[in-house]
Design a protein around this nucleic acid. Structure first.
Lengths: 148, 148
DNA sequence: AATGAATATTGTAATCATTACAATATTGAA
DNA sequence: TTCAATATTGTAATGATTACAATATTCATT
């Protein structure tokens, strides 16, 4: 999609420092992974993919890292179903579409900044997300006939 | 808030039949509970509260019931964080605000029907939800000074 | 009202994601 | 290079959810 600035270790380290997070090996790699892949992965996906680059990596470390990055505002946790959390390094306000057939998650650029709407006087909004569920174009095509 | 039509066992049974769901005891009580309380409860909350009325109730039964009701479109599962699912019997499109301090969930009537917006050609949208996180008025007041 | 096949519920035992925690290793300022 | 602060590891809990077999309930039909 949009491959703007190349994501280097150095640029990731800078981003971590800016957020006052110590740039340890796993933090650098996890954030870099999320920025590069944009795949809304689960902890396990991150763990398995990074294990090839960082042989000693532990699952717990991925949990800790992602938690640190989330608290620092560098990563946004997504909870589109009960089972597993997913993580997104794009923290500008945008929405997410989850295909109920293939499970893929798509970013959607709906404008939800205005959606703070009515009946929210006195509420402080820190984070917002628009979630849509349905069928992605590919799965919609295949399901045309055999709808459940 | 809006106590419109009184929720009777009979009205709930009718709603179940309309959705072609057999009105068993736990289904009637779970749906009635959700319609009456509007409290976005967890499975455990439903279980504990209904146990007083239905002494033999099992947690598994609440899981099954809520799953059946969800599939029938009578109940909407909410996943605002990783830990536990919550359930809402109001299936018209509306949003949810979760207070990060007290954990309470508020319904918000933001208009998200239009939010299907750009870049979604070919996508079929079945369900949508707008989630907001932040502080509710009460907690915002208390946190004025001691912000984390 | 009684019967019986289809379906729902129960309760226990898995499973799976996440967290707690103590031991070890790494980071970065001095 | 040294050292205190902090991060990572790995194992062992925890907590939500699911699988499943035994039992009970529902409801259409007698």
């Amino acid at each position: 999609m949009s491959d703007r600035i190349p994501i280097t270790n150095e640029s990731v380290i800078e981003e971590l420092r800016r957020a006052e997070v110590r740039p340890s090996t796993s933090r650098i790699h996890v954030l870099k992974y999320l920025l590069a892949e944009r795949n809304h992965p689960t902890i396990d996906q991150i763990y398995r993919d990074l294990l090839e680059i960082l042989p000693g990596l532990s699952r717990t470390s991925v949990y800790n890292t992602v938690s640190t990055l989330s608290h620092a505002g560098l990563v946004r946790p997504l909870s589109l179903e009960g089972s597993e959390m997913r993580y997104d390094a794009f923290t500008e306000d945008h929405g997410h579409f989850k295909c109920e057939a293939c499970g893929k998650i798509f970013d959607i650029d709906a404008d939800i900044s205005g959606a703070t709407a009515k009946g929210l006087d006195g509420f402080t909004v820190n984070r917002r997300d628009l979630f849509l569920w349905g069928l992605c174009p590919d799965c919609a095509k295949h399901a045309k006939t055999k709808q459940s």
